[in-house]
Design a protein around this nucleic acid. Structure first.
Length: 427
DNA sequence: TCTGGGGTCCTAGGACCC
DNA sequence: TCTGGGGTCCTAGGACCC
């Protein structure tokens, strides 16, 4: 049996842990740039504020009901997430951390204690130790556990826990669920399935397998098998290494200036390089993209992107920033209002394989230079991890020609001493 | 005026190898 | 008149997830 533990309204719940006055009130957390709703309390959902809805379109509702607004505080949410995951890790023999607010647990063997009793105790423990409310779905496959979790959230009478122990229980639950709410069935497939008379999860489970395989491909076939109790998706106990690393941002106001765009790209490349070293990987490909607003009616959208191959895979910030700057020069078109830019690293390989790395015939940098670079990066990371990111940075990343909007940011309660002191003084 | 960020997997087609 | 079989790698596009 798999349990899916999912934090309720996770980002809002994190804000509430440190500000209990928010309980019972409508609360929303906004995306970067304070643009869209990315987490809503139940009270906010009841007001009709949609997931992903742009905040400016709902200003009247937000004001009329005095909805509490927060800028996304990912430092806080990431730290709260690890508290939740650490708590869960102690309560099951194995666990897969599926996302910032979800984990699958292996519940094999707990039948002897009584699954429901045990799962309720997990729920209580997480609430007690972290302050975060969770819902739990339990079933013989991951896809059915997701479905059970959704049932637990939708129906208050379940009190946060829903178990689908056998085929009959699963079929009853599937009959009441729209096919588009099944894990792995997105908007396009929902449209296609509805057109073909497949409306509920049960309809999909009972559809001819060859037809599903043909139109929804191998991933859809797996979903169908899982709905029928045939487990195809095992717990992934160790996170596989990343295949790409991306840093991108929308700008608070449009950027037209090439120099300002260059500062943003240098900043994103720097962040990517830091993440890359954190993963213990080297990158061989650097992609840069810049684009104008997709919502702008008057002008056609420009989306410029290009990838550069590095002669030798690296994790050196300077080399990656240099490569990114060169790519930017290729795709920059003057006279446009840029709304977003980003850097993506690809061709990743573990540092551990460095000795096996194929050197380049044309490589201008001998091995000694690479060793120097590695020491420089270690020093850079040591200074910044002690005194704060950005304390020591390269000149290209020093400018402020681009900015994000972030007007309602809560303190970094769990990751910054300065922010805790600020709270004490304020109150 | 104002609309997020970061990923994965699958398929098909092209180019290439022996 | 007739032209094989078995592969890999790369890229673009589509679909999905949170």
């Amino acid at each position: 049996m798999f349990a899916l533990v999912d934090c309720n309204n996770f980002y809002v719940s994190c804000e509430r842990v440190f500000n209990p006055g928010l309980n019972g009130r409508p609360v929303v957390v906004l995306s970067n740039n304070d643009g869209c709703f990315i987490s809503r309390s139940n009270e906010a959902k009841a007001l009709g504020l949609p997931m992903g809805g742009p905040a400016f379109r709902f200003r009247k509702t937000l004001e009329a009901h005095r909805v509490a607004l927060y800028s996304a505080n990912f430092a806080l949410y990431g730290d709260m997430s690890s508290r939740v995951m650490n708590t869960l890790a102690a309560l099951a023999p194995s666990m897969e951390v599926y996302s910032i607010d979800e984990a699958f647990l292996d519940m094999t063997g707990f039948e002897r204690i009584g699954l429901e009793t045990y799962v309720r105790s997990i729920r209580h423990r997480v609430r007690r130790d972290t302050g975060i409310p969770v819902s739990i779905g339990l079933a013989p496959t991951k896809t059915l556990a997701k479905l059970a979790n959704r049932m637990a959230k939708k129906n208050p009478q379940f009190e946060g826990v829903c178990i689908l122990p056998d085929r009959e229980a699963a079929r009853r639950a599937m009959a009441s669920m729209e096919v588009g709410d099944v894990w792995g069935i997105g908007r396009r497939h929902t449209e296609f399935l509805n057109l073909n008379g497949v409306r509920t999860a049960l309809d999909l489970a009972d559809a001819p397998p060859a037809w599903v395989r043909k139109h929804l491909h191998i991933t859809g076939a797996r979903v169908q098998a899982e709905l029928n109790g045939d487990s195809c998706l095992p717990l992934e106990l160790v996170r596989p290494p990343k295949q790409s690393i991306c840093t991108s941002r929308s700008f608070g106001s449009a950027v037209t200036d090439e120099a300002a765009l260059g500062q943003a790209v240098a900043h994103f490349a720097t962040k990517c390089a830091l993440k890359l070293r954190g993963e213990g990987e080297l990158a061989a490909l650097v992609t840069v993209f810049i684009c104008t607003s997709p919502f702008e009616q008057k002008h056609r959208r420009y989306y410029g992107t290009r990838t550069a191959s590095l002669l030798l895979a690296t994790q050196d910030t300077l080399a990656i920033v240099r490569a990114a700057a060169a790519v930017l020069g290729d795709i920059f078109k003057p006279g446009l209002s840029y709304k977003k830019a980003g850097v993506i690293l690809g061709g990743l390989a573990p540092v551990a394989a460095t000795e096996l790395r194929q050197a380049s015939f044309f490589d201008p940098e001998p091995l000694q230079v690479q060793e120097t670079s590695s020491k420089l990066m270690q020093a850079l990371d040591a200074v910044n991890s002690r005194y704060g990111q950005g304390t020591l940075r390269i000149a290209a990343d020093a400018g402020t020609g681009w900015k994000q909007r972030q007007e309602k940011l809560s303190p970094h309660y769990t990751t910054s001493w300065d922010d805790i002191i600020e709270v004490r003084v304020d109150s």
